[in-house]
Amino acid sequence: MRIWLTVLEQEFIIYFKKWIHIIINIGFFLVSTSLFSIVAGLEPELLAQWGAGVIWVVAFLSMLLAMPLLFQPDRDDGTLDLMLLSTVDPAWLALAKAGANWCVFGLPLVLLSPLLAASYGMEGTALLVLPATLALGTPALILLATVAAALTAGLRRGVGLLALLVLPLALPVLLFGVRGTELAVDGLPAGAPLMMLGAFLFVAVGLLPWAAGAALRATAN
């Protein structure tokens, strides 16, 4: 547990030293969502309908930008090999890295999403449901990404492959996230998709770090 916290702390220090990545991530999220609403030029009613899908997909894409940062730098400079040689269970390592990555790249999107939802003309409970779906869904996405990132970390051009591996696995999360928000936009209860997202997150926390740990071991040099 203490080692886990040390890894987490270290991850935060590294991420905040490279703070430009965080700004780029948030900037990408804001620019892409507003770009879509400008270019599509939709009617206000349609905009709220489309908003759920657009915000969710762009959130996924901007997190995808940061996913190679999970393991690639540590693999390149050899830190990862040293960590795998130590007594730390690689599953805990993966969990710590996923946690830090989500806090830095996922959480800001969750916090910013009500603002975007309002700009997309959403009202009432939708302004709360969208961040709720993101808060439950994005950690699950990061956990899925740790598996894919661990599998592709050794590759020279692994980013494209990482996206290709994450996308099919991430689809259920995206679908339920968007469905829940759409229900809320239409003024319907969104409990069921939220619960599905929660269930998905629990299963992801319980199983995926171990898969990622095995993947780290498998692809270690």
């Binding site: 591996l165 696995l169 692809t219």
Partner: peptide, 26 residues
Amino acid sequence: GYMLLHASLEERSTADRAAGILAVVG
């Protein structure tokens, strides 16, 4: 994804294990 991952990892034993984990997760 299984096939691409298997094809992109050069060492066969690594490719087997990595793609195998993906198959099991799927």
